[in-house]
């Protein structure tokens, strides 16, 4: 059976792997900030925990449930933001968002491994899954109390 190339592109090995065995899938006790995200369309939930020191992300983790795309995105995000300043994190999210939504973008260098999410662009209904953790991270950084919603 042949699997369509755009599906292979979406469900790359790295994404499937992170979806199945998410990294940093834990709670940070005494986190300096945390936030909760929710996608009312599918009921997916994510909690992001951060420990920040000297304006940099020292540790990042998450808990939650969701599809392969949302879990892999959260997992790889927590790896990518460690050691980054808040501005660097925001730039990275910005570049990530453009990668998923704009045509013909050259992936920004700072995205690193996150480039594997480029395949999501072919699946507009799945962009929300990929950005849920990022919106939640941003809320954690800005100290928003309310649950972040994709709607």
């Amino acid at each position: 059976m042949k699997v369509a190339p755009e599906l292979r592109e979406l469900y790359q090995e790295m994404i499937v792997d992170h979806g199945r065995r998410p990294r940093n899938f834990r709670k940070i006790e005494g986190a300096s900030c945390q936030a909760e995200g929710f996608n009312p369309l599918c009921g997916d939930q994510v909690k992001v925990y951060l420990r920040c020191t000297d304006g940099r992300v020292g540790d990042a983790s998450f808990e939650g449930r969701g599809c392969a795309i949302s879990i892999a995105s959260a997992s790889m995000m927590t790896e990518a933001v460690k050691g980054k300043s808040r501005e660097e994190v925001e730039r990275m999210f910005d570049a990530f968002h453009r990668l998923l939504t704009e045509e013909h973008v050259v992936p920004a260098a700072e995205l690193g491994k996150l480039k594997v999410f480029a395949g999501v662009r072919e699946f507009p209904s799945r962009v929300k899954c990929a950005v849920l953790a990022w919106h939640t991270l941003k809320a954690a950084l800005t100290g928003t109390q309310e649950t972040v919603s994709t709607e």
């Binding site: 599906l7 599918c42 599809c67 795309i69 699946f123 209904s125």
Partner: peptide, 10 residues
């Protein structure tokens, strides 16, 4: 091991 959304997309 597979979320229903991923089933739906495929």
């Amino acid at each position: 091991g597979v979320h229903p959304h991923d089933i739906g997309t495929i």
